[in-house]
Design a protein around this nucleic acid. Structure first.
Length: 273
DNA sequence: AGTACGTCCTGATCGC
DNA sequence: TGCGATCAGGACGTAC
């Protein structure tokens, strides 16, 4: 499931493959319409032919393909992935959008495959409009621990769902939220305004550590097919193994699970308070 | 404004 | 072996 580290790795992959500077020639979209609720949506691709890619930006889990006119937003949802393919390579199963690009004289395709169809491809007028509604990126060097603590301590909900709120901080998903809370021994149920400033500062650091650790691991472990942004065994690299009967790496007692807004939360009832 | 929750989708997994 | 039920979850819409 793509969270910040996976999305940043994808962005770098697209840069390496020469997407920046290339020009859209044609876009093929699957006939089946996107779900009308949730995140899934594909819109504005008819405006792409002729547009040149100026840069690839990211905030949180959102990728912005900055064009010479407008911006293309890419979101992977839960199961989306993008592969850069040569003209003769077959498209993967569940391909939803096939972008045909040209860079100088070389042609290639950027293919979005997404079994669950929650991914998003949408055109925006500007970088501001695509990133509006998102808080600062979780790895933004300008985001200080003090600012994080200040923002979080004003809220009364349990800390776990707050970390998933992209309008507060962008990029943290279910997995890394659990990892960070375990690192600093904070219960996912603890109300944000009841957490000491010292612990919030520590949590801010733990979020960065969890995300940066995963990013470094992904970067150094392209998978067997050579895909450089999804690591099959990444789940097993996490401190918390998200399977029934798994154990706390510190206390060695069985982890517990809770649900927040339908999302499963793994935590240790002994060391997280 | 903040909070809570249902909804979209389909492959994988489990129980019978 | 097969079939139905359940689970997984990001972000949005709606309700309070």
């Amino acid at each position: 499931m793509p969270e910040l580290p996976e999305v940043e790795s994808l962005r770098r992959y697209l840069v390496r493959e020469g997407v920046v500077g290339s020009v859209f020639e044609r876009v093929d979209v699957e006939e089946k319409p996107s779900p009308d609720k949730g995140t899934g949506a594909i819109a504005g691709t008819e405006l792409l032919p002729g547009r040149r890619v100026m840069s690839l930006e990211r905030r949180g889990k959102q990728i912005a393909v900055v064009l010479d006119e407008g911006v293309l937003g890419l979101h992977m949802g839960m199961t989306g992935r993008i592969d850069v393919l040569a003209p003769d390579e077959p498209i993967p199963r569940f391909t939803r959008v096939e972008f045909h690009l040209k860079n100088r004289d070389s042609h290639f395709r950027m293919v979005l495959a997404d079994p669950r169809r929650w991914g998003m491809v949408r055109r925006f007028e500007s970088l501001e409009s695509i990133f509006s509604g998102l808080g600062p990126d979780a790895l933004d060097p300008n985001l200080t621990a003090e600012q994080f603590a200040e923002a979080v301590s004003r809220r009364t909900s349990p800390i776990k769902p707050l970390l998933l709120d992209q309008s507060l901080i962008a990029g943290i998903g279910n997995i890394y939220a659990d990892e960070a809370l375990h690192r600093v021994k904070i219960s996912p149920s603890r109300r944000a305004n009841r957490i000491s400033r010292k612990h919030l500062i520590a949590l801010s650091g733990a979020i960065r550590e969890s995300l940066e650790h995963a990013l470094e691991f992904i970067q150094s472990h392209p998978d067997e097919q050579g895909r450089p942004y999804i690591v099959d065994a990444l789940d097993d690299r996490m401190r918390l193994v998200r399977r029934p009967g798994s154990f706390c790496p510190r206390c060695e007692i069985p982890l517990r699970t809770l649900k927040f807004g339908g999302r499963t939360t793994y935590f240790c009832r002994n060391c997280q308070r």
